[in-house]
Amino acid sequence: MEARIVIMDEPTAALSRKEIDDLFRIVERLKRQGKAVLFISHKFDELYEIAENFVVFRDGKAVGHGRLRETPQAEIVRLMVGRDIKDVFPKAKVDIGPLVLSVEGYCHPTEFRDISFELRRGEILGVYGLIGAGRSELCQSLFGVTHPSAGRLVLEGQPVSFRSPKDAIAAGIVYVPEERGRHGLALPMPIFQNMSLPSLRKTSRAGFLQAANELALARTYAERLDLRAAALSVPVGTLSGGNQQKVVIGKWLATQPKVIILDEPTKGIDIGSKAAVHGFISELASQGLSIIMVSSELPEVLGMSDRIMVMHEGLQAGIFDRNEATAEILVRAATGNA
């Protein structure tokens, strides 16, 4: 179209590293041709690689601008979040309670094997590994999506097995998926109906849904999560990524679970929303909820976890306490060089 200005909104969100490199070559060619490129991203490495100037937006307002080469990353984080970088991971100190979940010798025919760990009340167990390590597959099996070939689960002292996610939910284990738009939400439906989906018995009377009860339930968790939306009746697909994630978390909290599995909880959301999600995860742990948090981001898993389990090619490469874990240790374990 011979455009003079090209706007790219999160263009690398679903691309591999090779595809990102190809895209950046195209961007450089456009720049040499005199085109102007507006590149929207929350990934710092991309911004520093492809851009010369930056503008930071927060809550709908431009809060800072400048030359990337002259601006340290910590300053951009401060502008985006409205606080210092050391406050991005607001991990509260929690007294870890009794054992809640025990996973013993857990195996899947094709995805993982010999996974064993314990999860205690109020604990955040981080799960780190490279793509293909089997992290999400493990989470889905714990939630009853797939069935293990060996091993057992013990929940609050009682052996359990799940034929389906329905059984896991009834037992008190819930799962926030990595792909919230595909697997966690009904995007055309309003917020309040998404929030009440797993709790229809609570919001029904004599087999009939009560809209007032659905709205009341949704309002409770929308306020608790500081959900930003014009109304609870708007389609959830109109919300930002961060607010969509709050809806997914809210609908599972309404079931009053014992264990919540968060698979890449801040994937695809801006750093300000990430800070809000991190704060809420820490709050949940302080209230006694047991949390399994899968993350590909080293700062997140190091900043939020009490212990970190590392996976490598379907195997458990190690479990590290918060005080001993470093980026180097985790990466070596995740790449099979521990």
Rank of each mutant, 00 (worst) to 15 (best):
residue 244 Q to N: 13
residue 22 D to F: 12
residue 272 G to E: 04
residue 307 R to Q: 13
residue 211 A to Q: 12
residue 67 R to C: 12
residue 66 G to P: 04
residue 224 R to L: 10
residue 24 F to D: 03
residue 1 M to K: 13
residue 25 R to V: 08
residue 88 V to A: 06
residue 228 R to G: 06
residue 42 H to W: 08
residue 131 I to W: 03
residue 4 R to E: 15
residue 332 R to Y: 15
residue 171 A to N: 00
residue 240 S to D: 06
residue 37 V to S: 06
residue 281 I to E: 13
residue 144 G to I: 04
residue 127 V to G: 00
residue 120 R to N: 07
residue 26 I to S: 09
residue 284 L to V: 14
residue 132 G to Q: 01
residue 143 F to V: 05
residue 334 A to E: 10
residue 279 G to Y: 09
residue 87 D to M: 05
residue 235 P to W: 12
residue 51 A to C: 14
residue 258 K to N: 06
residue 170 A to H: 07
residue 51 A to T: 14
residue 146 T to L: 10
residue 258 K to A: 05
residue 21 D to L: 08
residue 30 L to P: 02
residue 150 A to I: 03
residue 252 W to G: 10
residue 13 A to K: 07
residue 147 H to A: 15
residue 245 Q to P: 06
residue 12 T to E: 04
residue 182 R to H: 10
residue 314 G to K: 03
residue 62 A to V: 11
residue 226 D to N: 12
residue 180 R to I: 08
residue 307 R to H: 12
residue 101 L to K: 01
residue 219 R to H: 15
residue 187 L to N: 05
residue 74 A to S: 08
residue 111 E to F: 05
residue 100 V to A: 02
residue 96 I to M: 03
residue 196 S to F: 06
residue 29 R to C: 07
residue 278 H to M: 09
residue 335 T to Y: 09
residue 241 G to F: 01
residue 328 E to M: 05
residue 21 D to P: 00
residue 171 A to Y: 01
residue 305 S to A: 13
residue 48 Y to F: 08
residue 173 I to R: 03
residue 144 G to S: 08
residue 220 T to N: 14
residue 172 G to C: 11
residue 143 F to M: 03
residue 64 G to R: 03
residue 136 S to K: 06
residue 220 T to A: 14
residue 264 E to N: 06
residue 53 N to E: 15
residue 101 L to Q: 04
residue 316 Q to V: 00
residue 60 G to P: 02
residue 157 G to M: 07
residue 278 H to C: 05
residue 39 F to Q: 07
residue 57 F to T: 04
residue 234 V to F: 04
residue 140 Q to M: 07
residue 277 V to F: 05
residue 33 Q to W: 08
residue 46 E to T: 07
residue 314 G to L: 00
residue 19 E to W: 02
residue 289 L to F: 11
residue 311 M to Q: 13
residue 125 L to W: 00
residue 303 G to Q: 05
residue 154 V to K: 02
residue 183 H to C: 07
residue 266 T to S: 14
residue 327 A to T: 11
residue 40 I to K: 02
residue 333 A to T: 06
residue 263 D to Q: 09
residue 159 P to Y: 04
residue 328 E to F: 13
residue 162 F to N: 02
residue 174 V to P: 03
residue 296 S to K: 06
residue 79 L to V: 10
residue 89 F to K: 11
residue 308 I to E: 00
residue 289 L to C: 09
residue 221 Y to E: 14
residue 1 M to D: 12
residue 109 P to M: 10
residue 262 L to K: 07
residue 217 L to I: 14
residue 111 E to G: 01
residue 205 R to K: 15
residue 79 L to T: 11
residue 99 L to G: 06
residue 92 A to R: 11
residue 327 A to E: 13
residue 95 D to N: 05
residue 289 L to Q: 11
residue 116 S to T: 12
residue 132 G to E: 09
residue 100 V to W: 08
residue 173 I to E: 03
residue 161 S to V: 04
residue 284 L to M: 10
residue 27 V to M: 12
residue 191 I to F: 11
residue 53 N to Q: 13
residue 62 A to F: 01
residue 84 D to H: 12
residue 35 K to D: 14
residue 234 V to H: 04
residue 15 L to W: 00
residue 108 H to L: 08
residue 258 K to E: 04
residue 177 P to I: 01
residue 137 E to Q: 14
residue 47 L to C: 00
residue 77 V to K: 10
residue 101 L to F: 03
residue 11 P to D: 03
residue 331 V to I: 15
residue 138 L to E: 07
residue 236 V to T: 06
residue 75 E to F: 13
residue 301 V to F: 05
residue 325 A to D: 12
residue 261 I to L: 07
